[in-house]
Structures are given as C-alpha cells and as structure tokens.
Design a protein around this nucleic acid. Sequence first.
DNA 1: CGTTACAGTGAACACTGTTCGGCAACTGAA
DNA 2: TTCAGTTGCCGAACAGTGTTCACTGTAACG
Lengths: 257, 257
Amino acid sequence: MTDETAGTPASPPPSPWERERPAPARVAPAREPLSRERVVDAAFTVLDRQGLDGLSMRQVAAEAGVAVSALYAHVSSKDDLLELMYARLFAGFAMPVPDPERWREQVRDYARSWRHLLLAHRDMARISMAHVPFTAELLPHVEALLAVFRTAGLPDRIAAEAGDLISTYIDGFVLEEGMWRDRAALQAGDKSSLARPDWREMAGEMQNYFASLPEQDFPHLRALAGLMVTDSADERFDIGLEIILRGLASYLPSPSV
Amino acid sequence: MTDETAGTPASPPPSPWERERPAPARVAPAREPLSRERVVDAAFTVLDRQGLDGLSMRQVAAEAGVAVSALYAHVSSKDDLLELMYARLFAGFAMPVPDPERWREQVRDYARSWRHLLLAHRDMARISMAHVPFTAELLPHVEALLAVFRTAGLPDRIAAEAGDLISTYIDGFVLEEGMWRDRAALQAGDKSSLARPDWREMAGEMQNYFASLPEQDFPHLRALAGLMVTDSADERFDIGLEIILRGLASYLPSPSV
DNA sequence: CGTTACAGTGAACACTGTTCGGCAACTGAA
DNA sequence: TTCAGTTGCCGAACAGTGTTCACTGTAACG
C-alpha cells in the first residue's frame, strides 16, 4: 500500500441488519473501566495464542482480568465480538485513490496488504470468510475498490463482480495457507516435542507423496508435484492474482495484455 | 456435467495425514446394524434440517435412532464425520475426459455442477471450505482438473494454480450465497411468522439501502446498486467464472480471446 | 448521611464433543 | 444345552461452551 491514499470517508448510515449493541457507559469511569476496545484487544491476544477454536468468552474474560458476564455489557454476543475484530482489521487500512494508469498495481497492492493483514493474526481468514463485507464501516472500502475498477474502464457488470471475486480469492487463499500451517504444526507437535512447525519438511513430505502416486493414474499430479506444494506462498498468491487481473483486463476496450 | 466422463480411477494410497478410523465391524450384522453410511445419512438429514450450527452428535444420534456413544464406533470424531460428508459429495461426480477444443466448457460445466452439489445441502460450502481437497478419495478429481488445464496448453505453473483458484472461487461464492440466504430467512422470520425467506424482498431492501447512501461519498456503489445485489445468483456466478477463464486463456500460446 | 446508579460478579441453564464401564444379545465350541 | 467370548449399543459422566440474571460492592450526587 503506497501513500497515495484518501482518508476514510464519512461513515454511512447503518445497514438494515446492523446488530444493535448495548449503549456505552454514560458516567465517568471509576478506574480503568472495561471498554469495548479492551475486550477486542483481549480477544486478539487470545486468538493469537490459542487460535479461533480456543477463543472462548471465558478465555477472553480471563485475559481481560474480568468475569465472563462483564463482557456482555460491551459486546452483545460472541458473534458480535468476532464482527468487531473483523472491523478492526480494516481500521488504518487506507484505500488508494483510483489511477487509471496504475489500476493493476493498485489492486495488487491492495490484495497483498489485505493478505498480510489477515496473516498478522492467527485464523483471521476464517473470521473474515464468515462475514459479508457490507457492514457500514466497510462500505468505504467496497466503494474504493469499485472506484478503481470503474475508472480503469471496466464494464459495470464486471466491476460489480470484481471486488467480490478478489476478496474471495484473498480470503480463500489465506484460509488454505492457515490450514496447511496448522497441519504442519500438528504434525511437528506429534512426532517431536519441538512444536516449531517445520514447513519445508511438510512440503517435502507432500511432494514425496505425490511422487509416489501410480504414474498411470496420476501423470499430471506427479508432473506438477513440485509446483503444487511449494514453500513460497507469496509466489503462488501472486500467480493466482495475476490470472484474475488478466481476466479483468480482457474486458478493457483497448487490449493491453 | 455431460456424459463424456471417465470412471473414477483406482484409489491411491492414503495421504500421510489420513485419519485412522475404527475398523468396521467384522461379524455378520444382527439386525440392521448402524453403519458408517447410516451415520452419514443421518448427519445429512440433520444438516438440511438444522444447518451446520445445529449439527450436533446428539442430533445425529437421535436421527439415527441410537445413543450418542454408538456413533463413535463408526466415526472417530465429529471432524471425521464432516470429512466423510465432504467426501460423499464427490461420489458419483464424474470428471470430464480432457478435450483441448472444449476446455472452457468443460471447466464451466465442472464448476456449475460443483456449485449445484454444494447448494444441494445446507451450509455445505462451509464444510467444503474447511477441507483441503488432497485426501485420497479426492485426488482423482484434482488430477482430472489438472489434465484439462494441461492438455489445453496452459503453462505448468498456471495449471498448478488454476485448480485451487477455481475451487476457491466456487466454495467462496456458494458460501456467500448461503450467508445471504440465512440472513434473508432470519429477517423474514423476525418480521413475520411466515418463515419463508423472501429473497427478492431482501434484495430490494439492500438496493434501497445502497441508493440511500450519500451521493458524494459513494457514487460508484450507488451507481452499481442494481448490479451488486441481484436475485440472479446464477448470472453472477457465471460472470466471475468467465473472468477467471479469460485470465487463464490469456496464458495460451495462440491468443483465442 | 442516605440514595441512586451502575460496572462487575458468581452461579446457574442448556447445551456441546468425547470417554468409559457395563449390559444384552448374539456367535461358536464343548 | 450350556458356557465362554465377542460385539453393538447404552447411560452416565466429564470438561467445556455461550448466555442470562439476581446480586454485590463502590462511587458520585443531593
């Protein structure tokens, strides 16, 4: 993400289905009262330590040094908490000002930044996947992406799908990344007390497995074993992204492969 | 999916991380003993009735007319059960014999069939998303897709990513579809006792919401409101798919837009 | 001092996945 | 026919989940 950014626009009115949250405390704080922010902070700490499956309200409460029921004064449910975590990811994620000449790089930058944001917290892609990005805080981002596509000259129908397509790709890719990592960690934890997930080892094991398949039934899988499972996820991510970008570019009036 | 199909090839040796399941009963059944098949059947019934969140081992047991603990004789965990459900979806899903002339239609057919399979059971996309498709039963499918891409003439690196890219797209798209449907159902259930999820109504509501956004901050979102939320998911699915296909085609030696 | 307001508590409820000791019915052998 | 032995299933239990609610203590105000 470069610095050619527009600040987040004024927030729109809430979506029709927006969840109503308990109103924030009205009086001056006694000491350091529990706030929505602090609950979300604690939730992120627990998430990074124990993963999404270990993220229970009890753990969050313990992390915040508070009773479970206290959480429900600032958050209406666990679902709501997850939504707040999802929304926070977007905070400070500035969107590009559309530049028709550089739309591909802008989309690439956007996608890469978003991926790294997802990678910054364990299991974050799973949380992201579970949310339609049409809540009020996120609409500016959808708008900005649309702006990039439309000013680039894409037909409306294509532009309307492009955002969804790319978001889905990013979320899905990072989700899968996380699953591989989890499996590697699990396997490493099994066979040795060294819990360090040895990624390369797992990749090698997978390649060996592919190479061991019967040549007759799986010629292509065998041939591409080295490419299917690689330790360079960055590269794979860029390739998939490039495929999508090329597809989008094919809809531009002037053919600029 | 047309009839130009190859039967499922011989099943490969199990992946390194394959879960070991309890061996099936060895003696002749007394009456109509509980089988792995019947457990999965019951699970699908519960899934369609109550959704993934309502799919508990207790419910499955009740549906099968059996105690909870009996399930664990045929399935090693709930995760294992979900994996079996996922694998069953692929059963009877025949793969195309690669035809370089028709690779686009073949991929299109494949994608559409897979989407409809996912739509056939509630929340199935969520289950699908949670699994890497590299378990032994599914490798033939990966191989078949790879075959289509490679015989079409795509470079290896591109072919290796293409399968993942398309799977991710399908799963993600259907997942989102399901989320909208759930929301529509929830909203309809809220405002009227008629639990029938009125899809068009929700789409209209969304469009109104987009149209109500301030013109200054959300010009593009307003302009494309009609295209972003449409009741014809089929059309949207095909558009996204076409974008990907065009991107892939751009890597072919002979430019055949 | 008394009153009110309220953030935070702890116990409870109805669930969840999973395990384990035991029971009943069937098998094959004596 | 009787006696193991095995197998399929059951009930109860354990530790955990999200959520609610009557309750406390403390702080500020009149």
